[in-house]
Amino acid sequence: MNIFRLAGDLSHLAAIIILLIKIWKTRSCAGISGRSQVLFAIVFITRYLDLFTNFISAYNTAMKVFFLGSSIGTVYLMYLKFKATYDHNHDTFRIEFLLLPTALLSLVLNHEFSVMEILWTFSIYLESVAILPQLFMVSKTGEAESITSHYLFALGSYRGLYILNWIYRYYFEGFYDIIAIVAGCVQTILYCDFFYLYITKVLKGKKLQLPA
C-alpha cells in the first residue's frame, strides 16, 4: 500500500459517500444516471467474488464489502425508494453498447481463461466506461448540480491516483498489471473534459454548465 493507492481508495470512498448523502439529504436522485449506478453495481459484484475465495487484508475486505453494499444500496434508492425523483427521460444511454463489447473483450484479452479471471477482467473493462451514461446525461441536460460535480470529480480522481500508484509499483515493486493499467488510463481520459469544466467553473463557485 502506497500513498497514491490509499488516496485513490479514499477518493473512491468519498465519491460514493457524497452520492449517498446527496440522495439521502435531498430525498432525490435527480441528475444521477441510474444506468451508470447499475453498471457500477455489476462492476463490484463481478470483481469482488474473490471475497469468498481469497483473503488479502482486513482493509481490503472492509472496502470491498462497503463498495458492494453501497453500490447495491444506491441502485435500491434510485429504482425503488426515490424512484419518483429519478430523471429517466434524460438517462437514455444504451448500456448494452458498453456491456456487450466489454464482455467480449474480457473473453479475448485476459490473464487466464477461467471464470473468476474473466469476471475480474470484465469488471475492469466495464468500470472504465461505466461513467459514460452519467456523462451523457450531464451533456444532455447541459448542467449538473454542484454536489453531482463533486461526486464526479472524486470518482474521476480515484482512477487518476491509481495511475500514480501503478507507476510507483512498477518502479519500486516491479509489479504491473497491463489490463488494469490500460483500462485505468482509458477511464481517466474519459473524465478529462469534465475535470477541465470542474476546475474552471465549479471551483470558482459557478454551476457546471456546458457551453451552448
Binding site: R5, D9, H12, R47, D50, N54, I56, N60, M63, K64, F67, H111, E112, E117, W120, Y162, N165, D177, A180
Partner: peptide
C-alpha cells in the same frame, strides 16, 4: 507468474 497472484487492488 502474474496470473497465479490474487488481485490485491480494489
Amino acid at each position: 507468474d502474474e496470473t497465479e497472484e490474487a488481485h490485491d487492488e480494489l
